[in-house]
Design a protein around this nucleic acid. Structure first.
Length: 597
RNA sequence: GCCGGCGUAGCUCAGCUGGUAGAGCAACUGUCUUGUAAACAGUAGGUCGCGGGUUCGAAUCCCGCCGCCGGCUCCA
């Protein structure tokens, strides 16, 4: 994501590094074509159209050339050029020519229409032998880039202008910092993220697997992984019930004709698995979303009075979406996903209150999972004509959402033009412990589907009206949220979520096995999830294994404990709590679980 | 779907320019019976992703497919 010069202190550095890199690349490929090269979060990139694919060795050479250019302390020289001069300057650079024409029509470098089309100034920055179409700003000279504080990270394909119909360019990603220490800290942060990667931890802790025999994007969950799913879903279900939501079940397969009525067939067909054909009148699809099913259920349940609204239908059903293979990643992007989905059928005058209820619910759940840092993006209708035309409804909904956000003191930013075609929405972007943002919860207002599917309620005046539907998800999907949680906690789940909450470790398998087994039985009977390690390994090895498995409590049992009916408690953090009676440990664990601490 | 990289025992990985595979951990067996992060010894384990091709000979070279990784696009 691009950054702004006025808010990012590294803007000049990284932008300048991108220019230096472009020079280095053109030195190697004089006939290469250059596209754009902006600073981004943590670094910069530049897109090139080159005669051959770049290799890791190329990156090394480019870095070396960059250091030489940096050592030359070449000043960055800014100048304003008129359109013809610009065209002539970049006559061999087709992408630049396209950018110039765009600029003259008020577009920015991404081809987006700017706020004000007028008064476009075309300017360039030159250093050494390289001159680039650029509005700056830059450093004073190349020598201000610390030669040991930047690094080229990777090469990736990127479509010109982000359009899959246009040429695929080669993008070089780099990072640049003010000092080697900063660079090292950044690289260390990347290592940490890698260490926490849910795919890695998932394997280490034995939570889930993928198999070629099952298919891409279709995770298999082990007993431990399924326990996590179960606990997560039970928790949301409990909260939802407490907030007045009801749970429904609508299965996995739906007649295709429903999606033709709802409009999904037109708009979403690409993302559905191919049809199952019984005969030409009976064609079925795997459900890619719940809304048409919930709305159908609403209809089948008979005539609804305005007094019966709101009706809140929640469901944990697994949905199947035919995502492009190239986009699948671990649990965060799968083809089988279990949404904690809900559809709220309400009157227009209830939007604000229902939105507020969903806000409170989401806030409670996110805080339980220790996502305390999140922001809300309120996506509103924009200027374009893609939105359904009903100004009155839009105004009502947008104002209701704002009012609820204000009422509950939720900070939010407005994003005009980002709304769904069918209504405005609020998305929750939560930051994990590594500072990465994840879109988890969402609340969307829908005017169009209820109408298309013919939903009605009888209003106060006895006339049938179309209800408004709010689509709402709390954690998004169980799979994705589990992936995020694994990374957020680095696999060390809080006690209430830990698949194995305690492990009993007898010091001698000969002398203490019977008592260890009895302790395990007592804890299990008390509702705890417990394992007993009866292997012949030494106690130290068992502790190490338990540590690596991130099991919250290790209960060591030797002669002393056996004689006194106790367990010696060691925590995952390495703390030795000493010996305590089994009952005392149970009490402690229960309190911790209840508090979801 | 597109661009690039990768695919060797359950896991992590080695195997130079072609001569039919190797380590550590895990597993299994035995010895040891242990006090807060790895006892010692031995055994077993691989169609080198799959399918073609080149070659006297392919894990190694070529082609196709599948999958994974990094991006792009997409993400109701």
């Amino acid at each position: 994501m691009p950054v702004k010069p006025d808010t990012d202190p590294y803007y000049r550095l990284r932008h300048s590094a991108a220019h230096v890199m472009a020079q280095a690349v053109l030195e190697i490929f004089p006939e290469g074509k250059i596209a754009i090269g902006p600073p981004i979060e943590d670094g910069f990139y530049y897109d090139f159209d080159l005669p051959r694919p770049l290799t890791p060795d190329d990156l090394k050479e480019i870095e070396q050339r960059m250091r030489r250019i940096i050592a030359g302390r070449h000043p960055f020289v800014h100048r304003v050029v008129d359109p013809d001069e610009a065209r002539s300057l970049f006559r061999d650079q087709p992408y630049k020519l396209e950018l110039i024409e765009g600029l003259l029509h008020g577009q920015d470098e991404y081809g987006e229409q700017g706020e004000s089309g007028a008064g476009t100034v075309i300017s360039t920055y030159r250093h050494d032998t390289f001159e680039d179409l650029c509005r700056g700003p830059h450093l004073e000279h190349t020598g201000q880039i610390p030669p040991d504080a930047f690094k080229l990270m990777s090469v990736a394909g990127a479509y010109w202008r982000g359009d899959s119909n246009r040429p695929m360019l080669q993008r070089i990603y780099g990072t640049a910092w003010n000092s080697k220490e900063e660079l090292d800290a950044y690289l260390h942060r990347l290592e940490e993220a890698k260490r926490r990667d849910h795919r890695r931890i998932g394997k280490e802790l034995g939570l889930f697997y993928f198999s070629d025999d099952i298919g891409p994007g279709l995770p298999l969950f082990t007993p431990k992984g399924e326990m996590l799913r179960h606990l997560m879903e039970s928790y949301v279900r409990e909260v939802q019930t407490r907030y007045g939501y009801q749970h429904v079940w609508t299965g996995h397969i739906v007649r295709e004709t429903l999606y033709k009525k709802s409009g999904h067939y037109e708009a979403y067909r690409e993302n559905m698995f191919p049809p199952m054909v019984e005969d030409e009148d009976h064609v079925y699809r795997l459900k890619p979303m719940n809304c048409p099913s919930h709305m159908t259920l609403y209809k089948e349940m008979g005539i609804h009075s305005y007094r019966d609204l709101p009706l809140r239908f929640a469901e944990f059903a697994t949905l199947y979406r035919y995502e492009d293979r190239g986009t699948l990643t671990g649990l965060t992007r799968v083809r089988a996903l279990t949404q904690d989905d809900c559809h709220i059928f309400c009157r227009p005058d209830q939007i604000e209150e229902e939105f507020g209820l969903a806000l409170r619910l989401i806030r409670e759940v996110l805080e339980t999972y220790r996502f305390t840092d999140y922001r809300v993006r309120l996506s509103l209708r924009g200027a374009g004509g893609k939105y359904i035309a009903d100004d009155e409804a839009w105004d009502l909904a947008e104002n209701a959402l704002r009012a609820a956000l204000d009422h509950y003191g939720v900070e939010y930013e407005e994003a005009p033009g980002e709304a769904a075609i069918y209504g405005p929405k609020a998305d929750f972007l939560a930051r994990d412990v590594l500072g990465r943002e994840w879109q988890l919860s969402t609340i969307q207002v829908d005017f169009i589907q209820p109408r298309r599917l013919g939903l009605e309620y009888i209003a106060e005046d006895g006339q049938p009206r179309t209800p408004v539907v709010l689509h709402r998800a709390v954690t998004g999907s169980t799979e994705r949220f589990l992936g995020v949680l694994i990374e957020h906690y680095a696999g060390a789940f809080p006690l209430w979520l830990a698949p194995v909450q305690a492990i009993v470790i007898p010091i001698s398998d000969e002398r203490h096995s019977a008592y260890a087994t009895e302790v395990g039985r007592q804890l299990t009977a008390a509702g705890l999830r417990v394992e007993v390690n009866l292997s012949k390994d030494r106690m130290q090895a068992k502790i190490r294994q338990a540590q690596l498995q991130k099991i919250p409590y290790m209960l060591i049992i030797g002669d002393r404990e056996q004689h006194t009916g106790a367990v010696a408690v060691r925590t995952r953090s390495g703390e030795d709590l000493g010996a305590m009676p089994v009952a005392a440990f149970i009490e402690r664990a229960r309190a911790e679980i209840k508090a979801k601490a």
